[in-house]
Design a protein around this nucleic acid. Structure first.
Length: 719
DNA sequence: TTCATGCGGATTTTT
DNA sequence: TCCGCATGAA
């Protein structure tokens, strides 16, 4: 069976497990996703199960894409014509289900999916409706609480209300749900909540889905939340064929309601569950694994794993302390330059990871200064940009005229004399007439009178209504791009954007969205908007560019790189200060660090800075507590002594601030053994950083003491 | 209604 | 630091 070729015996066992509930527990780099997709292929090719009876789900788009890629290459061409297994995220799968079962929902089939900013707008609206002051109650906080409740399938009425805040939350939650329906919208959490509700209401629906998809696979199972777990259990029933892959140590989405204890829950719910372990690591050197284990073993209440590899010890972990974040970024860029000059790594082999997106900034600047390219994952999301969101809001409004949030967003962009007050009277008159604001707009466009609206306002509204009714016609007749073009020209968007700051870029973004619409061809607006809502651009890694990748630790999960830099190993950064009071949150920060470490194949650089700008002001910061857990014999580098009473701070201050010039960046450390193409082997005596050149003084065995420019010399480091 | 200016405030991670 | 937001003037 060539399907099993190249798999070790543990992996084979898992792939060929008998039908029934199965759990694969594995560490990083052990081939989890590989095993999952092989299992998928095994079901189809060996057990002759019909592909369309199989569902494979994950939490993130990135994981879904990876699964798709692997499955496609395993199943090959012969499958591409016929029925396909359903692969994708929970959200995408159940959004589809909700469209199909829309007649059971309080929204129509055309419902739109509200993202976080839409959600916040609704919470603000709800607060207003309830006469609550959004300055005293943070909308974001309330939204978080609502979201948590929804992920636990708790209805507003069932919410415990023991404090003022929870009482407020309950009332806002109630109103918020109503507002969603008014807008004919669902939020992310609804995409899981409603399927659960539907299953609960109608057992025959559950049966139907069970029969339709008798074979379930789940990747990254430790990231499922309660809503997802319960959906899974509904689909699986009592005697499921359920194949689940998990690593509790890599659970990093607790804040989204993910609960790695679902692994225990699964064991309890399915006593027949077969458990398989994957213990061998194929990715990292033993040094990296040892360090990663040392970090994660500090976690209480977990089953220890012994990660091993046959890749050998490899090089030590590089630890470096910089003066500040700019220095840190500079060190990263210079180290990468050195790695590539020496031929040790390709630029594309390198990843730089950080806790928060904001940290990418100093890195980007450093790369820019050095004139080096980089790939940035996520950060300012394309679909999060204002001009793109505005354009999407137009499309959403045309698609779903009930969407008030979108209407409010676009009705005066570009400015057309319809301000907050006009909008208010529009909605007020509409609701007293029992119509939606959009309907009223259309009536005004047809010239209907409306005595409660000032004449001047009516003119502006009617004009917009005429545009709007035109779009509704275009929507029916033309492909998506046609509609986009029509909107763009009707609202003179180009002129509007170009008149503002950064207009060129923003117009370019608008055109990019247009291009995305064009790619969708004749497929409808519904799918396009759903795609836009559910697929972030976190996973749009341009594979073609051979340049270092900059990404958050979260975005790094599931990826691997020969060389990994983790920056910002400081208290407040990693662990993030928002996690400091809560032991569970702190535990997750530790896992995040663990995930970062285990992305590396060969080499890890850990960086911290003595001083860091937080919200404008520059603060001294403490080294991350995680650094204390690193085994000393696996580390090399120059941290200036950890434990920090004033003395240590003083020591650092004098080291960094009294000794100008700034600390040099020792890429070639004294005593290091290097190889030069013409001079042969030698020992580094000294390294010096000039403005844009690194000079290394080397005592060569054959040629004596020489001074060479690191960038030109093509030095090789010898162990 | 819009534009400008100032203020304060607040900072995670993703579907 | 920067951003969004509110407030005030044309």
């Amino acid at each position: 069976m060539d399907l099993l070729e190249g798999l070790n015996s543990q992996q084979r066992q898992a792939v060929t497990a008998p039908l029934g509930p199965a759990l694969v527990l594995a560490g990083p780099g052990s081939g989890k996703t590989r095993v999952l997709t092989h299992r998928l292929a095994y079901l189809i090719q060996e057990l002759a199960i019909r592909p369309e009876q199989i569902v494979a789900l994950t939490f993130t788009n990135k994981a879904a894409r990876e699964m798709e890629r692997r499955a496609a290459s395993l199943l090959g061409q012969q499958q591409s014509q016929g029925a396909q297994p359903r692969l994708g995220t929970f959200h995408a799968f159940f959004a589809r289900m909700l469209r199909i079962e829309a007649d059971r929902l309080p929204v129509s089939r055309d419902f739109v999916i509200f993202d976080e900013s839409d959600q916040l707008a609704l919470v603000r609206q709800a607060l207003k409706d309830l006469n609550l002051d959004p300055k005293q109650i943070q909308p974001g906080q309330v939204l978080g609480a609502i979201s948590r409740a929804k992920n636990e399938l708790i209805a507003p009425a069932a919410l415990t209300t023991d404090t003022y805040f929870t009482e407020i939350t309950r009332r806002v939650y109630e109103r918020y749900q109503e507002l969603l329906l008014v807008n004919n919208a669902l939020d992310f959490d609804d995409l899981l909540l409603w399927p659960n509700n539907l299953f609960g209401q109608d057992p025959s629906l559950v049966t139907a889905y069970r029969q339709r998809y008798p074979h379930l696979l789940v990747d990254e199972f430790q990231d499922t939340n309660t809503a997802q777990y319960l959906l899974l259990r509904s689909l699986a029933g009592d005697r499921p064929d359920l194949f689940v892959v998990a690593d509790p140590d890599q659970s990093i989405y607790r804040w989204r309601g993910a609960d790695y204890r679902n692994v225990h829950r699964l064991q309890k719910d399915y006593p027949a569950l077969m458990t398989y372990l994957l213990e061998q690591n194929y990715r990292s050197t033993q040094t990296i694994l040892d360090v990663a284990m040392a970090v994660i073993d500090r976690q209480p209440d977990r089953q220890r794993k012994r990660l091993f590899t046959d890749r050998g010890a490899g090089s030590l972990i590089q630890l470096h302390e910089s003066y500040d974040q700019d220095d840190e970024a500079q060190f990263v860029v210079e180290s990468i330059a050195m790695l590539t000059f020496s031929g040790e790594a390709d630029p594309g082999d390198v990843a730089v990871m950080y806790r928060t997106n904001a940290q990418s900034r100093s890195l980007e600047e450093a790369f820019f200064r050095a004139g080096l390219p980089y790939r940035l994952v996520g950060a300012q999301r394309f679909y999060g940009r204002k001009e793109v969101k505005d354009l999407i809001a137009y499309l959403r409004l045309i698609h779903n005229p009930a969407d008030r949030v979108s209407l409010e967003r676009v009705i005066n962009v570009p400015p057309r004399g319809i301000g907050a007050k006009s909008f208010e009277s529009l909605t007020a008159v509409a609701s007293s007439a029992g119509a939606s604001p959009a309907e009223l707009l259309l009536r005004l466009a047809r010239g209907e009178a409306s005595p409660d609206i000032p004449a001047r306002t009516i003119g502006a509204l009617a004009q917009f209504g005429q545009l709007f009714s035109g779009w509704l016609v275009v929507k029916e007749r033309e492909p998506l791009v046609g509609l986009v073009d029509r909107v763009l020209s009707d609202i003179a968007y180009r002129d509007y954007l170009l008149a503002g700051t950064g207009g060129e870029d923003r117009w370019a973004n608008a055109l990019e969205l247009r291009a995305a619409a064009e790619e969708f061809g004749t497929i409808g607006l519904t799918e396009f908007l759903q795609q836009v809502a559910l697929v972030s651009d976190q996973d749009t890694l341009t594979e073609t560019l051979n340049a270092p990748t900059l990404l958050t630790l979260h975005a790094a999960k599931g990826l691997e790189f020969p060389v990994v830099f983790i920056i910002g190993l400081d208290e407040g950064e990693l662990p993030h200060y928002r996690s400091q009071e809560d032991p569970e949150a702190l535990a997750e920060e530790r896992r995040l660090f663990y995930v970062g470490l285990t992305r590396a194949k060969d080499k890890v650089y850990l960086l911290r800075a003595f001083r860091r700008r937080v919200a404008g002001t520059s603060n001294l910061c403490e080294p991350s507590r995680f650094l204390e857990d690193l085994p000393a014999d696996r580390i090399e580098g120059d941290l200036l002594g950890l434990k920090t009473p004033e003395q240590a701070i003083y020591a650092r201050q004098t080291k960094w601030e009294d000794n100008s010039p700034r600390p040099s960046v020792p890429r070639y450390q004294v005593g290091m053994r290097v190889h030069h193409p013409t001079f042969g082997e030698g020992i580094v005596l000294e390294t010096q950083v000039d403005r844009d050149e690194v000079e290394v003084t080397i005592n060569f065995e054959a040629a004596g003491v020489k001074r060479v420019a690191a960038s030109l010399a093509n030095l090789d480091i010898r162990e």
